[in-house]
Nucleic acid binder design. Structure first.
Lengths: 368, 368
DNA sequence: CTGAAAGCGCTTACAG
DNA sequence: CTGAAAGCGCTTACAG
């Protein structure tokens, strides 16, 4: 061993195991550490051939940047955070997050950034999680999902000095860019579809009114119902299949006569509602039309297949990540609106029965 | 401003924004930085009252450790990684991961550790992801899920010098502890259940044979079939609802007579299979019994509700994380076996029809 | 165009 | 029991 290796051997570790540092590159290339850093970061002020030589030796040594050191000196984490605050079973039943994260990842991996994910039960644990993520300096910014009414996370994130992007527009002032999908358009299209099929008695099974997107879908439902001169029956739930089933039982047992169509605020509830209807001896869509939201993979694989509203969730994730990274890099960013959610009509919706439905009546299925 | 603040003001930033460092604590407590570090880390060699004073001033200044600095000097990331390498739609349809990650999180948050999550499409991108996670020094170890036959990640992770824990036992030598759930017991219980109901023609819709847990479930099926003197028809899929549906169509159209029961290797496929059967005019469970695996939230909310195999996925995540953290801390760890998967019998399984099933036949449902 | 030095906020031998 | 110093691997003014 040449004596120049002496220092890296200090720990008694095999040289092969030791990672090359810029000091190694500098020594081998015969320049200073600072110059190596400049060359590696494509900064001006390094002679062309010097740069070449530095890059070559770095490659030869298999050098790669140590993010810990980089982070410490640049005061950046090169990572963003996502905090999921829903009851575990609701997160699990909803394919939104895995798809969304896959989209986020496509953007991050190319940019050398990492995603740190935290799952918490809703409540004060949530704020603590954001707080420690920031205090530990693990992330540069967060993606705020599941925006709530008067969401206190906006102020918290601002106080913590993190960058952020919100999924959808908050209901109050926000210093953060919003990346949104117009899901109201999806609800409106659903209503048009049902009205066109002759439905006049349509109910909505909504998500929690504290969640902005659930409230938005509900308002779109109510607006559309009003526009068509229909009553707007709404049952609120927590987005779970269990409460979706309960809401359906409630609606089907309604003394005022059960609705001929139910618009659910997500797919898991619609699937649970479908089962409740079938169990009650109703045929879907002959006796009852049903629609979901988010166009889960399963939607086209149940019987009857489920009419649902599709959004490009992965694209949403990718754009949200891109906007957040731009924000972190202090680049100017605008609010972004993604293509509106669109209705995918399938078998679970059809013409309203002309008479009160009978269990034995045969009628050709129409619609999608 | 006293002149002792001069240095922290160098950037022209408001003092309120500046985070307290151990240097600040040391100055205010009148000791050296080293001593502060010792006191804060509960190391011996600090006088009782000195320690008190240091802790008090740290609290007063709202000091919290900067993980970047800590990481750089200790050569640890205080974070673990999870790389999801499945097609996005399969990850999305399978509630395993969100639940698993919630379990992981319960363990990590208490230990001041973070989870960095990467989602990749299977293939060479996967290895690159592990590689850069390690080279960037972002994580100390990984949880290896979805073990494959002859899984090359074992060697890769070892080469990268990362710690790891595997979900289930690899099929070859592994230096890493395994945390396993005996899902074979679940399959065996399913078979016992079906045989007891009189089924003699049982098929299995398996996951990819390259995936160890899919292969394990399949082998358990075949063993159990053999033990009962039954033929073991198996159709292999990629775990997706789409292929689950296709496999079901194939089995129902089988020239040798269709099976009276189908054991699916996961719930999404079972749900898709249920729809295929219903679409073909078969009544489940009267004409065909169906079972799933993993006991998805939706299993109890479809009609008929789905007999499935339940495992405590969240506990699995928590234990896996705990074992991994112990490994990273160089504590001795053993392989861990969690309670065996157990069958949850519901409506989708019942007595085999005594005659070849007729579409109009009425027979009281029995079983679960 | 290039070098030498200080600094990011911690930890950890090494001396007293 | 305590202090002063070096080091982790980078980046970045500051001089030449």
């Amino acid at each position: 061993m040449a004596e120049r290796d002496a220092e890296t051997q200090a720990v008694g570790r095999a040289p092969a195991t030791a990672r090359a540092t810029i000091a190694d590159v500098a020594r081998l290339a015969g320049v200073s550490k600072g110059l190596v850093s400049f060359a590696l970061n494509d900064r001006p002020g390094v002679g062309a051939e010097t740069r070449e030589r530095i890059l070559a030796t770095a490659a030869e040594l298999g050098w790669s940047p140590n993010m810990r050191a980089r982070s410490l000196s640049t005061n950046r984490a090169f990572a963003i955070g996502l905090v999921l605050a829903r009851e575990p079973d609701i997160v699990a039943a909803d394919p939104f997050f895995p798809t969304f994260m896959a989209g986020v990842e496509t953007e991050l991996s190319g940019a050398g950034q990492a995603l740190v994910l935290a799952t918490v039960t809703p409540g004060r644990q949530e704020a603590d999680t954001y707080r420690s993520l920031a205090l530990d300096k693990r992330i540069d910014g967060v993606i705020l999902s599941d925006l709530r009414a008067g969401d206190d996370r906006i102020a918290l994130i601002e106080e913590l000095g993190l960058a952020a992007v919100t999924l959808g527009h908050p209901d109050a002032e926000s210093p953060f860019p919003a990346v949104s999908i117009d899901d109201e358009a999806g609800v409106t299209a659903t209503m048009e579809h049902l009205v066109q099929l002759g439905h006049r008695s349509i109910a909505h099974v909504a998500g929690p009114s504290t969640m902005l997107h659930a409230a938005r879908r509900r308002r779109a439902f109510e607006r559309s119902a009003a526009a068509h001169g229909l009553a707007a029956r709404v049952v609120e739930t927590d987005f779970s299949a269990t409460e979706g089933a309960a809401a359906t039982r409630h609606l089907l047992g309604d003394a005022d006569g059960r609705p001929t169509a139910i618009v659910y605020s997500n797919d898991p509830m619609a699937l649970a509602g479908l089962a409740v209807a079938q169990r009650a001896g109703l045929s879907v869509p002959r006796d009852l039309s049903i629609t979901g939201f988010d166009n889960t993979d399963l939607a086209e694989h149940v019987y009857p297949s489920l009419t649902s509203v599709a959004t490009d969730v992965a694209a949403w994730g990718a754009i949200a990540a891109r906007v957040l990274l731009a924000t972190i890099a202090s680049e100017p960013v605008d609010n972004t609106d993604l293509p509106a959610a669109r209705l995918v009509a399938r078998e679970s919706t059809s013409h309203v029965p002309t008479l009160t439905p009978t269990r034995n009546g045969r009628r050709a299925r129409s619609g999608a």
